[in-house]
Simulated scan of single mutants.
Amino acid sequence: MTRRTVAGLLLLAAPLALAAAGPALSPWAWDDIDFAAFGAGPSRRHWLGTTQNGRDVFAVTVHALRRSLLIGAAVAALATFLAALVGTAAGFAGGRADRALMWGVDLLVVLPPFLVVAVLAPRTGGALALVAVLAALLWTTTARMVRALTRTLREREYVRAARLGGVSAPRTIVRHVLPQLASLLVVDASLNVGAAIIAESGLAHLGFGVRPPGVSLGTLIADGGTAVLAHPWRFGFPAGLLVVLVVAVHLLADGLRDALDPAAR
């Protein structure tokens, strides 16, 4: 493993460990309310203070971290799957199927992302709808790259031999094309995790993030940002976790690219 991969894994281990063990470390559940401490500062009772609603900041942030990790992983998996599916199908089939699929990709590329979110978000609710919207906006660029590589791989001797031997197109893609694209797809999935978390955090500031009573790092940062000078503990911990998480994911993606792509080395 490269140094970047090791650094990314070590840095990513901290938020992952916190997400796994955090609820057991705090005596407070994320939705518990301390009616004697609304907007209180850090203390023995509440290590990182409380929110304006009396919830423990540490417990709420750990719960939000878990939600953000799930959203990021789900968006990355769905976006990479769509890119691989459409890109390989278009590149391998060619002809009218290729043109039709790429027309759909080009249509999604030119649509303003904020307009899409603004139109769909008020009509959909919940984390699943947010995952679907974010994934729909993140897969198009990778699909074009996958298509270009698939068109090149389609002309390789072993792929031609499989086609002449009567092997079906889906089986040929799975056995001979996708393994050659594995490094690209792994790096793309890693980058999409960070991109999805950042996108969700940005949408939270605009009111299009996770809906109450659910919380994510983005919603906590948006709420804490309104009182960052008066109550910095509400903003600092979730913002710090977001920075660590995104930096770790990008370091890991860069390390994986260097390790899996000989051209990058």
Score class of each variant (00 low, 15 high):
E155S: 05
E155V: 01
Y158G: 00
V159L: 03
V159Y: 02
V159K: 00
R160D: 04
R160E: 13
R160K: 11
A161L: 13
R163L: 14
R163S: 07
G165D: 02
G165R: 04
V167T: 12
V167K: 02
A169G: 02
P170C: 00
I173V: 15
R175H: 12
R175E: 14
H176C: 00
V177I: 15
L178I: 13
A182Q: 12
A182V: 11
A182R: 15
S183R: 08
S183I: 02
S183A: 15
S183G: 15
L185G: 06
L185S: 05
V186N: 00
V187I: 09
L191V: 10
N192T: 12
N192Y: 05
G194D: 06
G194K: 05
A195Q: 14
A195W: 15
A195K: 13
I197E: 10
I198A: 11
A199Q: 05
A199S: 14
E200R: 10
S201I: 11
G202S: 11
G202Q: 11
G202D: 08
G202H: 09
L203P: 04
L203I: 07
L203W: 12
L203D: 05
L203V: 02
L203G: 03
L206M: 13
G207S: 11
F208E: 00
R211V: 13
R211K: 13
P212A: 01
P213S: 01
P213F: 11
G214A: 14
V215D: 10
V215H: 12
V215G: 01
S216E: 12
L217G: 03
L217K: 10
G218H: 10
G218L: 03
T219N: 04
T219I: 11
L220K: 03
I221W: 09
I221A: 04
I221L: 14
D223R: 11
G224T: 10
G224M: 09
G224I: 09
G225E: 08
A227F: 15
A227S: 13
L229A: 12
